[in-house]
Design a protein around this nucleic acid. Sequence first.
DNA 1: GTGAAAGCGCTAACAC
DNA 2: GTGTTAGCGCTTTCAC
Lengths: 346, 346
Amino acid sequence: MHDVARLAQVSVSTVSYVLTGTRPISQATRDKVLAAMAELDYQPNAMARGLASRRSRILGLLMPMDERGLGATETAFVTGAAAAASVAGYHLVLSPIGGGGDLDDLRRLATQRMLDGVVLMEVQLADERVTVLQEAGVPLVLIGRTGDADALSYVDIDFEQTVREAVEHLVGLGHRHIVYVNHSAATLASGYGPALRTRDAFVAAMTDYGLDPVMIPAEDSAAGGRAALAAAFARTPELSAVLAMNETAIFGILGELTGRGLSVPDDVSVVSLVTSPQVAELATPALTAMTSPGSALGRIAIEALVRHLDGPGNERHQQLLPCALEIRGSTAQRRPAISEPPRRGD
Amino acid sequence: MHDVARLAQVSVSTVSYVLTGTRPISQATRDKVLAAMAELDYQPNAMARGLASRRSRILGLLMPMDERGLGATETAFVTGAAAAASVAGYHLVLSPIGGGGDLDDLRRLATQRMLDGVVLMEVQLADERVTVLQEAGVPLVLIGRTGDADALSYVDIDFEQTVREAVEHLVGLGHRHIVYVNHSAATLASGYGPALRTRDAFVAAMTDYGLDPVMIPAEDSAAGGRAALAAAFARTPELSAVLAMNETAIFGILGELTGRGLSVPDDVSVVSLVTSPQVAELATPALTAMTSPGSALGRIAIEALVRHLDGPGNERHQQLLPCALEIRGSTAQRRPAISEPPRRGD
DNA sequence: GTGAAAGCGCTAACAC
DNA sequence: GTGTTAGCGCTTTCAC
């Protein structure tokens, strides 16, 4: 930087100011400085900037990685967030730090002033990470919501709206015996927000239609899906539609349906909740799904965070986005059972 | 740090030395210092340390994210790498920077001395990121190999060995007409190492058995898998086994097989290459697969990188790890066609 | 609109 | 085994 200043025949502070833009510089000197920087192939040192300015211009995206891998939905969050960060002049780094034992790791990262702000993915209703980060004084935005998120910034999927639309689609096709296959009982018990919120939304939506809301939990595996479907038929033999939010179990559900000689969508319609097009297309037939607004969520979260950092610093952003219904091959008009007399209005 | 020194009644440098451990400190003073740090709830500032020491103690994992999402295999890389970094006293951050337009972003990150070293995932045969990083003077380790990786450190899957074992398994079950479904023609043309290496290995292995090596490319989609299978039957009507390395197409392959009234594994055996147990269990029947050594790859890459950084700095680590054969329900003894007379030795 | 200089919070010679 | 001190490469008052 010294060299740049000398070459441009200005002071180091002037060079710094063209870099940061924190004070007006005449076009002439700016050009001189820029030319000198290019000439010398100068690159500012991020550590030194960070130390002097007390801002790293690095944003963290905390993304617990379980062994199941990341779906296309999560990937979309990430790419959306990275793009938004880049636009705002920040770097985005992902940290695989989870809710597990590496909470100390997180505390260290947060407290060492390496990150200007953080976006949390896969937020639990009671999420220790939030406490840790708040204590460390790191600005944060959630993707998802804790139980008491009133004071926090978040963006989340509008599960109520999403489930309602899915149910509406199925009811519109004439289905009346709809079973919702959720995540596992253990996941529900652990306070996983999406599982709880969709459960409640399903009950509400079905009740509004005067229908019986049957929910079955399923382990996150193909076998879990099969078991759940078996349970569903035991509980509701007239079952003609399945709503599911479980990207792994859904394959077991489809397999079990086929195994029972039932055709999708002729005998049973299937809608998958919060599902990426990529996964939806993997199935045969391709799944009608509520597609999550992945990259928008990531983008909005970062934008809110940046506004918080660059702005007065007391904003609070709370926003819900619904998933979009994408009709593919797994839903169809309900076919009345042969034994069933036609009803008026059919 | 000043305060810590005063409280412990030592100099700041002594505090620094107990922090870095770069010179012997008597147990007594160390304890005093540690006590003072705890008392004041002191946390060193990462930026300042980085500026003064010229090392950030941050390692980057460059992980291109395409819209397909990360499989369990990639996730295992990441968790293995993160664990190893933590053990070595480094932080690991992931950067979603890809081979796309954000090469400048990478150059900036690399050149600003924010990262002590990086691990590259999804390495292409000709990978510009390698050039950029080398020019920036950032130590790097590849997961995968470029075309001329002789001078670089890398860890990669031993595709030759992996394919050979898969073919051996199928031949051992009596299969002689085996088709290999690879990634797409475009992917092959783009110089994607795994696709090319498995192709060559397949040809070599089949030729060794005196068999005809038929390879069919497939788009990364269920539809691509169906098309590939159709092409495979057109080319090799006697087909009794499919080898595949394409986690998305494999579902189309299975669907098409079922659609043709063929049973897996009774009529056709299927082996999936470089596949995680999670994905293998998704299919019906569960797939016999060559399971990739995911977390070991990540761990070894980080360990090599750290050795490079902390050691004399001229090591070069090159290592290949084979996938492990895990037999599940998609492979079985070949069933001779009815029209086919029994051969001697059967 | 520009320059001079005082730090930012540490590390690592150099002293003893 | 410990203390003193000169930076690391920037940002940002304060002065003009």
